[in-house]
Design a protein around this nucleic acid. Structure first.
Lengths: 230, 230
DNA sequence: AGGAATTTGTGCGTATGTATC
DNA sequence: AGATACATACGCACAAATTCC
């Protein structure tokens, strides 16, 4: 437990809703109660709730339809809650899943950008799939100081939940860089991606200007693409 | 002039500020007047102005600093106002410019996604540069029905202004897809990009669900990258 | 160092417009 | 046409961060 200052109400609410979506309590397509009802139930003003919903809409998690209602858009999906980009099949859509390959605490290599305070990092390697078809390799570096140990069991459900509930961290800012690069050696068990692949580098901030995570995702662009909607 | 319904005030204000930035009336680093002053000058409520400023901040055009002020972030730059991604040098930053190579009205080829109502499109080809160094090739398809003719002179200043003032169109939604592909044949005069390159496909909506523009940008990823910040 | 002034952030409540059902 | 529900707009009070004296 950190001594983090209390989040603003509107962020508390959007975080809570995001968690409920992640946990599957709110499912895709589901309609939320009317804003006035919901605000009353939460004990906040309608304007505050609307700000929270705007947040979620901006993240693509919610669709707001005037005259109709607010609808959950994203299915419950692991580890993609704060993603700026969505990984999609070339044809669009696809149910995202991820399988953890390895989790190791190792010294940060020199080619990583500066983030966190430790010389070590937790290196998490995963295969990401859409509708069961492997489409990308991913390497996530979590700063060594946020946790002494990380095990695959911690990560099996949702990276998001792990960060929020086990570490007490709320990711507040993300920077993505898009380029191309050859995929790294992920071992024989991993998907063989053609060389080179489109990839996205991500720096995640837990608090302003203090990144605690760095990740790289290599996407087989014949099978899937990163999609961003404004 | 279209019979478009009047835009909400907060969008009118953000559009106007965006134009001023594009036109160079507001320069990078410049601080805006205090919100209360500004709102009074515009004859609107502070909350409405704040919503406009939030828009611009979300677009990366403005930086809002509590206790300090609102600062213009982007330099005056042509045609990048609505960009979801920013094209940056690998080291970060770089002053973006663009040079139009050709503008032609031609039948839409079959590999374009569905957009607009015409069988023809205006094909605009450009070289984009950062700090004077060519880093990307770009092909923009504007639906044939939004204008009978388009000339390079129309585009020399700013694609944004052209859309807004000549065509009366406000881009309201953008969808970007990231992948890799070989750069096309842009003629001998164009920058020779290595094959393949990282590229971004963009569909721009003028009104909800009615895209009028499609573009593809091929980026030499050794020189520049697309960067998105949340 | 410290405190006041300035400036943006959060939160509330209300009234009216507009799209959907 | 009426009811429902989200969108816009206004105004106010207080909190929090920054700036300046």
């Amino acid at each position: 437990m950190t001594d983090t200052a209390a989040l603003p109400k509107y962020l508390q609410v959007s975080e809570r809703l995001a968690r409920q979506v992640t946990a599957g309590l709110l499912r895709a397509g589901e309609r939320l109660p009317p804003e006035r009802e919901m605000a009353e139930g939460l004990g906040i003003a309608v304007g505050t709730l609307r700000k929270a919903l705007d947040q979620l809409a901006a993240q693509g998690m919610l669709e707001r339809v005037q005259g109709s209602g607010n609808y959950i858009r994203k299915p419950a999906q692991a580890s993609n809650i704060y993603a700026f980009f969505r990984l999609e099949l070339v044809a669009g859509g696809g149910l995202p899943t991820a399988r953890v390959l390895t989790v190791e605490r190792v010294p940060k290599p020199g080619d990583l950008p500066a983030f966190g305070t430790s010389a070590d990092g937790h290196r998490i390697r995963r295969v990401r799939a859409l509708d069961g078809v492997p489409v990308a390799l991913e390497e996530i570096w979590l700063d060594g100081d946020v946790a002494a140990r990380v095990t695959p069991a911690d990560l099996s459900e949702s990276l998001y939940l792990f960060y929020r509930e086990r570490l007490g961290l709320a990711i507040t800012r993300i920077e993505d860089r898009v380029g191309i690069a050859p995929p790294p050696g992920f071992g024989a068990e991993a998907l063989a991606l053609p060389d080179p692949a489109c990839f996205v580098e991500r720096l995640s901030w837990a608090v302003e200007d203090h990144p605690i995570e760095f990740s790289r995702t290599w996407v087989h662009s014949d099978r899937a693409r990163y999609v961003a909607r404004s």
